[in-house]
Amino acid sequence: MKMFKSVLAVVISLGLVACAESPTGRRQVLLFSDGEMSQMGGVAFDDMKKKMTINKDGATNRYVSCIADAITASLPTEWRGSWEVVVFEEASANAFALPGKKIGVHTGIFAVAKTTDQLATVIGHEVGHVLAHHSAERMSVQSVAGTGTQLIGVLLGEGAGKETVMGLLGLGTQFGVVLPYGRAQESEADLVGLDLMAKSGFNPEASISLWQNMSAVGGGQPPEFMSTHPSHASRIKDLQKQLATATPLYQRAQANGIKPVCKR
Score class of each variant (00 low, 15 high):
residue 208 I to H: 03
residue 225 F to I: 13
residue 153 G to E: 13
residue 153 G to R: 09
residue 155 L to F: 04
residue 179 L to R: 00
residue 184 A to D: 15
residue 199 K to Y: 07
residue 232 H to N: 15
residue 218 G to N: 11
residue 172 G to W: 00
residue 159 G to K: 09
residue 210 L to Y: 10
residue 199 K to A: 14
residue 169 L to A: 02
residue 137 E to R: 00
residue 205 E to G: 11
residue 143 S to K: 14
residue 206 A to T: 07
residue 166 M to S: 04
residue 225 F to V: 12
residue 188 E to V: 06
residue 141 V to G: 03
residue 233 A to I: 11
residue 152 I to S: 11
residue 161 G to L: 05
residue 156 L to G: 11
residue 229 H to W: 03
residue 202 F to N: 10
residue 240 Q to N: 13
residue 199 K to R: 15
residue 140 S to M: 02
residue 205 E to Q: 14
residue 141 V to Q: 12
residue 186 E to G: 00
residue 244 A to E: 15
residue 195 D to S: 15
residue 241 K to L: 12
residue 222 P to W: 02
residue 228 T to Y: 00
residue 177 V to C: 07
residue 226 M to Q: 09
residue 236 I to R: 02
residue 208 I to N: 07
residue 178 V to L: 13
residue 216 A to Y: 05
residue 187 S to H: 05
residue 213 N to T: 08
residue 185 Q to H: 13
residue 159 G to I: 05
residue 184 A to V: 09
residue 176 G to C: 11
residue 163 E to D: 15
residue 146 G to K: 02
residue 236 I to L: 06
residue 213 N to P: 09
residue 227 S to N: 11
residue 215 S to V: 06
residue 139 M to H: 03
residue 244 A to C: 08
residue 151 L to K: 06
residue 226 M to K: 06
residue 217 V to E: 15
residue 152 I to H: 03
residue 152 I to G: 05
residue 196 L to V: 06
